[in-house]
């Protein structure tokens, strides 16, 4: 399997389908249990964050918005991957390892 490495932001492992959301206007596209992949979260992503099984962001550190929120929800989160929104594709099945900061895909 191929890997992407980022910053481990919230522990836990999740497996699910990728949903890339670059514009919060499209948050309705994310279905319960899908993995939210975006550049950087902001409060307009809230409904999607609540439904997602894990969060992946291109930008951000351990105390960035997505990271803090994921820890509160107890959902795996990897931030600062830089190219997640480019490499991952909608519907792709991936594994998010929030403890090691790794994404397994392909």
């Amino acid at each position: 399997m191929k890997q992407l490495k980022g910053i481990a932001a919230s522990y836990g492992i999740a497996q699910g389908k990728v949903r890339i959301i670059l514009n919060p206007k499209n948050i309705d596209k994310l279905k319960e249990g899908e993995i939210l992949v975006t550049k950087f979260t902001n409060p307009l992503f809230t409904p999607a964050i609540l439904k997602a099984s894990a969060i992946i962001t291109d930008m951000g550190g351990k105390l960035s918005h997505g990271a803090i929120v994921a820890r509160e929800l107890g959902k795996p989160c990897v931030v600062g991957i830089e190219k997640a929104t480019k490499v991952l594709k909608n519907g792709m099945k991936i594994i998010v390892d929030g403890e090691r900061g790794k994404i397994y895909y392909g």
Binding site: M59, G60, L63
Partner: peptide, 14 residues
């Protein structure tokens, strides 16, 4: 600084 990864700019602009 802890809100950003190493290479990006301060998250104040995001």
């Amino acid at each position: 600084l802890s809100a950003k990864s190493k290479k990006e700019a301060a998250a104040l602009t995001l």
